[in-house]
Design a binder for these strands. Structure first.
Lengths: 335, 335
DNA sequence: TTGTATGCGTTATCAT
DNA sequence: ATGATAACGCATACAA
């Protein structure tokens, strides 16, 4: 591995000149720049990451902390992770993957060792130990999701409350009166996962203002779970004509169950899905009306908050939900 | 940030002693070890990653190169990524995420800069430029998947040929005669993606020995794709009673289509799925008979080959397929 | 516009 | 069993 010093010798300049050619932090005459560049190419020089990190006390690495739970939908995480990685590259940074089985200790480790310049937290909980570690440590961080107290932090998330409200509105506009919210598994609510609670709150509030009768049913990620929930809904409230589903894994089973129970979508039952657009919504029949979670945008903005032009400005960014009307929603029957 | 030198002063020992307490590379009297440890705790010392990497020329980081294509099933990658990360941690390593949009250059970057000690390649193609970069560079690497020439490389993969054969066997054992293989999208085969070709080859060969009539149909990841393929299969060969599906995203649509076209599973049509077990197979109705891709095991072994006790031994590890018989396969009708 | 010299925090070699 | 100290490769403040 060639070193900067060797490049300098080869080009007949001083080491600092080579360094400045690389960093562009001071002006270099064209002639020497060319010579240096030639030497770099000739020797196949690559700056040593460790040395660079030591000298500049910047690792050019951001840590991405991902949950390893299986009860939240995986493609969203993957999309976020990829968006984070590609965006970080645009700022000359790499991404270190930290799984949450290390807990807060993982965050302490990467922050304390200077391994990462900044940390991105996914799947933030309302009271999150990792956030405390970051605060104490003074590490630059950005969160995807909202903790109970976001003071001094950079956070970005979908405005799930608005998403819930939008779903209710859409069904109300179509003349539905009895609707049901099929949510995540109970554990998610028990952990007080922010996004789930906010969606539900926004949904319920809007149902009230619009005069809709609504029920909430958590749903385990299994065929039985879906079957049980669905049966219960139509037993308790046979006149239910609208479903809001925030449980992407259950979309396919749900559609199958509705079909085999003889309820047509959207003629008899309308469905609005809150979740990832990509894999599921467009592969179903009928195609789903959705309020997509903008995974890519979340990842991008998280990095932007960390490394972008006005990094350091703490604050909460709530992305407005969008409604993609497809084929799974229609006017309520008998209207 | 406390430094090693400060810890040394605080403990009244020399810097090297502290270093050796940390690394355990030479014997230390209990008394000083305790004093040093106390100083470490008192100052909240964490070794600086950059300095450590510079001095030891080991970053304790492995790079994981993930594809960003959307036509291969995402959960498998996520499972592999997580397995890689947790296993790497057991060896005291972290994982750097590299997306394949950087191409071979990304590999060159992390290897050349010493950012990573080793590289794990996912979604390896038969002729893979990245492999050449690694070879030239002499970087330690392990591949998940098989290149055309694996000489000198550590590779691990599911034995997809055996998997294809196992699927054929299972259907043959059940008395099926006309069967169809629903594969990945055409692009995957055009790129000569190893696993797809090997599965198909193993399948076709075994069909021949067992006297089965078989057709292969690539399938795009869309509802229309599934519908078209299915229609074509039953038009060309109305007596088809067995389906082998290696396209996890299409499982749900396929089941839906079969149901709405009045073909019952498994009474009239049997289905064997080759793909991830977790999310899809157990959420369907009926539950799918599968030959699972052991994502976790693949990730674990890839790390093991890189960092484990006998790392450096190049060689190809083909994991034997397993067959999970569930509810989607039954004896051929009329037997 | 370019060169010189020092320091970054560890590891590891050589002493003792 | 422990201490001194020279690398490690680069960035940057200071000179010229």
């Amino acid at each position: 591995m060639a070193t900067l010093a060797e490049v300098a010798k080869h080009a007949g300049v001083s080491p600092s000149t080579v360094s400045y050619v690389l960093s562009g932090k001071r002006s270099i005459s064209d002639s020497t720049r060319v010579r240096v560049q030639a030497a770099i190419d000739a020797l196949g020089y690559h700056p040593n990451a460790g040395a660079r990190a030591l000298a500049s006390s910047k690792s050019h690495i951001v840590a991405l902390v991902v949950p390893l739970r299986t009860d939240l939908y995986v493609p969203v995480m993957m999309q976020i992770a990829i968006a984070v990685t590609t965006t970080a590259r645009q700022y000359g940074h790499d991404v270190l993957l930290i799984t949450n089985d290390e807990g807060p200790e993982g965050v302490r480790r990467v922050a304390g060792s200077g391994l990462a310049d900044g940390v991105i937290l996914m799947d933030v909980e309302l009271e999150d130990e990792r956030v405390e570690v970051l605060r104490r440590h003074g590490t630059r961080a950005s969160l995807i999701g909202l903790p109970a107290d976001p003071a001094g932090l950079s956070c970005v998330d979908l405005d799930f409350a608005a998403a819930g409200a939008t779903a209710a509105d859409h069904l109300a506009d179509l003349g539905h009166h009895e609707i049901a919210f099929i949510g995540q598994s109970e554990g998610v609510y028990r952990r007080h996962t922010g996004f789930a609670e906010r969606t539900l709150a926004g949904f319920q509030e809007r149902c009230q203002t619009r005069g809709l009768r609504a029920v909430h049913r958590p749903c385990d990620a299994s065929f039985e779970g879906a079957a049980g929930v669905l049966a219960r809904i139509f037993e308790d409230r046979p006149d239910t004509t609208g479903l809001v589903v925030q449980n992407e894994a259950m979309i396919a089973p749900l559609l199958g169950l509705l079909r085999s129970s003889g309820r047509t979508v959207p003629e008899e039952v309308s469905i609005v899905a809150i979740g990832p657009d990509e894999p599921v919504a467009v592969q179903t029949s009928p195609r789903l009306t959705t309020i997509p979670v903008p995974a890519q945008e979340l990842g991008r903005q998280a990095v932007e908050m960390l490394l972008g032009p006005d990094a350091g400005n703490s604050g909460v960014t709530l992305l407005p939900p969008t409604l993609s009307v497809r084929e799974s929603t229609a006017p309520a029957p008998g209207r």
